[in-house]
Design a protein around this nucleic acid. Structure first.
Length: 653
DNA sequence: CGGATCCCGGTTTTT
DNA sequence: CCGGGATCCG
C-alpha cells in the first residue's frame, strides 16, 4: 500500500500558532473564549495588545469571517497596529476587519446612513476650534456679547455642552455643581445651547459628540440598521474600555444586541480621560450591562523591571480607590528609578540631553527613549536644547497644528466646496480678503447663506464692486468646484491663492508655508475631498515642528495621554513638580487629583529598563515670577529604596 | 474696515 | 506679565 502525500504548493506557508505555549493561562483563556461577553482587566504591560492580537488570529483561524470582526480602539493608529501584528501572526490578509475609534466608526455609518437621519452626504465634522467659532457667532447673534455680568467664554461653553452629553447631566445640574458662578446665566446658556443645536442641524455640521449621539440615534431609531450591523459584526472587541463613557458603552450594547459577543479590555488604574466623560467605574459596570460576563485578570507584567514596577505600585498605592489587581514581573533585576532635582528648567533639559546621549553610547537607540510631559508646553525649553544638540525628536500630543490659523484658513476654502452650508468657513475665508470685514460678511450671510448653494456664492462674489480681490476668490472657488481636478491640484490652487494673503498676514509666514506644503503632501493619499477633510478632523496628524524623516532614529516627546499604550526602554518624566504634575488646576477636586495620580502611574509604567523622574527646583512663571518648586506629591514621599535621589553632574556653561 | 488701545484672565489632557 | 479679545476711534 502506498501513501501519497499531496503537497499543497498554492497554500501560503501558514504558521501554526501554539496558543497555549505562547500565552499565559489568563491570556489563553481570554483568547480562546469566543462567545459571550468577556471583560479583561489588563494591568499595565500585561500583554493586553498581545491578547487582542492573538484573539483576532484565533477567531480567524476558527473560521470567523474577518469581516464580522469590529475592533474599537482609542486611536486609529492602535487598531492599525493590532491588525498589522495579527496579519504577521497569521500570515494572512485581514483587510476585512473593520477597526477604528468610536468616532470614526460612527462617522462611517453616518456617511452611509446619514440620510435616514436627515443629513446630506456632504456634512462636515467640526473640531473644537470650529465649535468655538460657531458659539462666538451665536453669542453675537443672540446679543449676549454685551450682556453685563460674567458670561462664560466660548471654550467654557463648549466644555459645558460636551459635559452635558458625555456625562449625561442636565444643564441645570451641571451649572449648579461645576459652574455656580454662571448659574444666573442659566436661561441665556440654555438659549445658546438650543441655538447651537439648531445651527448645526441647519448647516450640516456635526461636532465630535454628535457623531456618537447621532450614531446612537441611528441604531435606536432604525431597527433594520441596528439589526444589519449587529448581524454583520458578530465579534466586537473594545480596547481601553476604562476610557469610554456611558454613551460609548451604550453604543457597544446596541451593536451587540443580537449576539452579546463583546470582549472589553481595560485597566481601571489607567483611566485618564474623565475630562471627556470617561469614568473608570464604567469598566466595573460592564458585567451589569452584559449579564454572564466572564471576567479575566491579566496580572503578570512583561514590560518593566521589578524596581520600576515597585515604584509604579507605590504611586498607585496612594490612590483612594484600591483594586484587587496585583502586578508582578519576572524581570527581577534592573536599575532603580532615579529622582533628579535640577536647579532650573534649563538644567533639567540639559540633564535629559546628557542622559540621552549617555544611553545612546551604551547602545540604546533614540527610538527606544521617550520624554513624557503632563502638558504640551512643558517641553518647550527641552525642544530648544535638543535642537541645539542635534538630537532628532518627534513630539506627540499637545498643540495641534491642525488648529493653527493658517491651516484652518487654507482648509476653509475646500470646506465650503464640500459643504456649502458651512457658514463658519465662508466667514473665515471672506475675512481673509483685504477690505472685507464684518459688514461684508453680514451682507453675504444675509443675501446668500440661505440658498446654501456654492454657485450662488460664487455669483455673489463676482457681483461685488469692491474689493477687487473678491473676483480672484470667485475664480478660485469656481475652479475648485469644477470637474477634473485631483485633490492635490485643488490644494495647490488654493495654496497659490492663499500664499500672498498669508504673507501679508503673518510675520512667521515662511514657517507656515512649510506646514501648508506638508499638508499638501498628506493630500496625496486621498481621492475624495470630504473624506480628506473629515479625516483631518477625526485623526489629525501630529505636530509638524522639527519633523524628521520617519526612517530616522528619533527621540519621542509625548504627553502622557498620547503615550498611553506605548513603551520604551528608557523613559524620562520631566516637570514632576507640584503645580505642573499634578497641575494646580486639579488641586480643588479629589477626583481630579486621583486622575493625576493615575496619570503618573501611566507615565511610570511606560518604562522597560530605565526610569528617570525630574523636576526643576526653581521655576519661572509670568504670574508669579520666580517660584520654588516642590517635587510632585506622587513621588515626594516614596522611600529612597524605591526612588533614588540623584545629584546631577551637568557642567555649567 | 482696520489699526490701536485697553482690559481681563490665566496656560491640561483628546476624539 | 503677556497675549487674546473686545472696544474704540480715525
Amino acid at each position: 500500500m502506498t501513501y501519497t502525500f499531496k503537497p499543497e504548493p498554492f497554500e501560503p506557508p501558514v504558521r501554526r500558532i501554539d496558543y497555549e505555549k505562547e500565552l499565559n493561562p489568563a491570556q489563553y483563556e481570554a483568547v480562546t473564549t469566543l462567545e459571550g461577553p468577556i471583560l479583561v482587566i489588563a494591568g499595565a504591560g500585561s500583554g493586553k495588545t498581545r491578547t487582542l492580537v492573538y484573539r483576532l488570529a484565533y477567531l480567524v483561524e476558527h473560521g470567523v469571517d474577518p469581516g464580522a470582526i469590529l475592533l474599537l480602539t482609542f486611536t486609529r493608529k492602535a487598531s492599525r497596529e493590532m491588525l498589522t501584528r495579527a496579519v504577521h501572526l497569521l500570515n494572512q490578509a485581514l483587510g476585512q476587519v473593520v477597526g477604528g475609534t468610536f468616532h470614526g466608526i460612527c462617522y462611517l455609518w453616518l456617511r452611509q446612513y446619514g440620510e435616514r437621519l436627515g443629513y446630506p452626504k456632504g456634512f462636515t465634522v467640526m473640531d473644537r476650534a470650529d465649535q468655538g467659532d460657531l458659539l462666538n457667532l451665536l453669542k453675537e447673534r443672540l446679543g449676549f456679547k454685551k450682556l453685563s455680568g460674567p458670561f462664560p467664554r466660548k471654550e467654557t461653553i463648549a466644555e459645558m455642552l460636551g459635559a452635558v452629553v458625555n456625562k449625561d447631566l442636565s444643564l441645570d445640574f451641571l451649572l449648579s455643581r461645576d459652574y455656580p458662578q454662571f448659574l444666573e446665566q442659566r436661561d441665556h446658556l440654555a438659549k445658546m445651547a438650543a441655538a447651537y443645536q439648531d445651527e448645526k442641524r441647519r448647516h450640516a455640521l456635526l461636532d465630535y459628540d454628535d457623531l456618537l449621539l447621532e450614531g446612537r440615534r441611528l441604531l435606536i431609531e432604525h431597527e433594520d440598521v441596528r439589526r444589519h450591523l449587529s448581524n454583520r459584526f458578530r465579534y466586537l472587541m473594545v480596547d481601553e474600555y476604562q476610557d469610554t463613557n456611558r454613551l460609548q458603552a451604550e453604543l457597544v450594547q446596541l451593536l451587540a444586541y443580537s449576539h452579546k459577543n463583546v470582549m472589553a479590555v481595560g485597566d481601571d488604574s489607567q483611566s485618564i480621560y474623565s475630562f471627556r466623560g470617561a469614568n473608570f467605574r464604567n469598566i466595573m459596570d460592564f458585567p451589569n450591562l452584559f449579564p454572564g460576563t466572564r471576567v479575566i485578570k491579566l496580572e503578570e507584567n512583561y514590560r518593566s523591571t521589578q524596581p520600576i514596577l515597585d515604584l509604579a505600585n507605590a504611586i498607585i498605592a496612594g490612590a483612594r480607590d484600591k483594586y484587587t489587581k496585583c502586578l508582578f514581573t519576572r524581570r527581577a533585576d534592573g536599575r532603580r528609578p532615579r529622582l533628579f532635582r535640577a536647579a532650573t528648567e534649563n538644567e533639567q533639559s540639559r540633564l535629559v540631553v546628557a542622559q540621552v546621549q549617555a544611553l545612546q553610547e551604551e547602545g540604546t537607540p533614540l527610538s527606544q527613549m521617550a520624554v513624557l510631559i503632563r502638558a504640551g508646553y512643558h517641553s518647550f525649553d527641552l525642544e530648544i536644547e535638543l535642537v541645539r544638540n542635534g538630537i532628532p525628536f518627534m513630539k506627540f500630543g499637545g498643540f495641534k497644528f491642525m488648529e493653527s490659523a493658517h491651516i484652518k484658513d487654507l482648509l476653509a476654502h475646500l470646506r465650503v466646496v464640500a459643504n456649502p452650508k458651512d457658514t463658519m468657513s465662508w466667514n473665515r475665508l471672506l475675512l481673509l480678503v483685504p477690505g472685507v470685514g464684518r459688514a461684508t460678511c453680514n451682507k453675504f450671510n444675509a443675501q446668500v447663506q440661505d440658498s446654501f448653494d456654492l454657485a450662488d456664492g460664487i455669483t455673489w462674489l463676482r457681483q461685488q464692486r469692491r474689493p477687487q480681490e473678491l473676483k480672484d476668490l470667485a475664480g478660485l472657488m469656481e475652479s475648485l468646484n469644477g470637474p477634473g481636478h485631483t485633490l492635490m491640484t485643488r490644494m495647490n490652487q488654493t495654496l497659490a491663492y492663499y500664499e500672498p494673503l498669508a504673507k501679508a498676514r503673518y510675520d512667521d509666514y515662511p514657517k507656515r508655508m512649510k506646514d501648508l506644503e506638508h499638508l499638501v503632501n498628506i493630500t496625496a493619499r486621498y481621492q475624495e475631498l470630504q473624506a480628506f477633510l473629515n479625516d483631518l478632523t477625526l485623526e489629525p496628524p501630529s505636530s509638524l515642528a522639527d519633523v524628521v524623516t520617519p526612517t530616522e532614529d528619533y527621540l519621542t516627546l509625548s504627553t502622557v495621554h498620547s503615550a498611553k499604550g506605548l513603551e520604551w526602554d528608557a523613559v524620562f518624566v520631566i516637570w514632576a513638580a507640584e503645580g505642573r504634575f499634578p497641575g494646580f488646576y486639579s488641586q480643588e477636586g479629589d477626583d481630579e487629583m486621583e486622575e493625576e495620580r493615575r496619570l503618573m502611574y501611566v507615565a511610570a509604567t511606560r518604562a522597560r529598563n530605565y526610569l528617570a523622574v525630574i523636576f526643576p527646583s526653581i521655576g519661572y512663571s509670568r504670574q508669579f515670577g520666580m517660584t520654588v518648586n516642590s517635587p510632585s506629591r506622587f513621588i515626594a514621599d516614596i522611600p529612597r529604596d524605591l526612588l533614588e535621589p540623584w545629584r546631577a553632574e551637568v557642567e555649567e556653561w
